[in-house]
């Protein structure tokens, strides 16, 4: 190996490590600040990197003044029901679009594609008025509402069904399976990686969505983690140690899930790419 290629390699590592540090530092700073006192966090001379004592006061105060257990439950249920509905309904529709011939198929699939191209904000006011008319604001139903079905999920899973060999269906037909049984027992299990990818996308989207919960669930008890953070920020605008504690409280569950399932996360998302 020549000196030039060694230098190139060193430069590559330097670049990658610098980049990784820039990804991590903001999150590390969040964690460090959350254990500091206000005085420590605003001391510039000397600049304080580590808290003198690792106190949890900020966490206790944030937890006492808010309803974090409700936020966790609301966020979890919103994610759970959205994943359940979008996996079930999208898989059904995706299979039909990928493999069955029926009148109206192309027109209906056109609607699916069209929905994906339209900015979601155009649906929000009517969706708000619908939930309001049903008297269902400030509920789990309201949080799940825009996610009962998923055009994106239908599109994504259709790609996975299209990739499966046709012989499987012919074989199961010979074994006496009807179309429903073929779908449920033969084809669906084979799209596992697609279902995992869609589940992850749905979970992340629900967890990160701020505008819908902010609009529809305005009562303190019915907020999600994302919308609660927005309210907490306007309530304690400049006490950064407390704000960082709130951020950590909102961030850790997803980070934990990510660390445990990182392979599924990254590969699920990688497997969905470029399929447009």
């Amino acid at each position: 190996m020549g000196i030039a290629s060694k230098a190139a390699k060193a430069a590559a590592y330097l670049f990658l490590i610098t980049g990784a540090a820039l990804m991590i530092i903001p999150l590390l700073w969040m964690l460090l600040t959350s254990f500091k006192t206000v005085a420590e966090s605003t001391s510039m001379n000397p600049f304080v990197f580590f808290p003198s004592v690792w106190r949890v006061d900020n966490y206790t105060r944030v937890l006492n003044q808010n309803h974090f257990s409700a936020y966790y439950v609301n966020t979890f249920l919103m994610m759970f029901f959205r994943i359940l509905c979008s996996l079930l309904f999208s898989a059904m529709a995706a299979y039909a679009f990928a493999r069955l011939q029926f009148p109206g198929r192309n027109f209906l699939f056109g609607i699916v594609l069209f929905q994906m191209m339209v900015p979601t904000q155009i649906f929000i006011i009517p969706q708000y008025l619908m939930v309001d008319a049903l008297g269902m604001r400030n509920s789990i139903f309201a949080l799940v509402f825009p996610g009962f079905v998923s055009a994106f999920g239908t599109f994504l899973l259709r790609q996975f069904f299209l990739g499966l060999p046709r012989e499987l269906e012919e074989a199961s037909k010979l074994d006496g399976c009807n179309i429903g049984q073929t779908f449920l027992l033969v084809m669906l299990p084979l799209t596992r990686s697609g279902l995992v990818a869609l589940g992850i996308f749905t979970a992340l989207f629900a967890y990160k969505d701020m505008m819908w919960p902010l609009i529809i669930n305005t009562s303190a008890q019915s907020a999600t983690l994302a919308s609660a953070l927005a309210k907490i920020q306007s309530a304690i605008s400049v006490n950064y140690p407390e704000l960082m504690a709130a951020s950590v409280l909102a961030f850790w569950p997803m980070l934990l899930v990510y660390i445990v399932f990182q392979k599924q996360f990254v590969e699920g998302i990688a497997s969905s790419g470029g399929k447009l």
Binding site: F123, P126, V149, F183
Partner: peptide, 26 residues
């Protein structure tokens, strides 16, 4: 096959109609 096709896409299409298509016009 037609009936299965319509049955399988029905929930998604109904949902898209109520949640997305009608709201665009609204």
């Amino acid at each position: 096959m037609w009936l299965w096709g319509w049955f399988l896409v029905a929930p998604t299409m109904l949902g898209l109609l109520i949640l997305n298509i009608i709201p665009i016009f609204q």
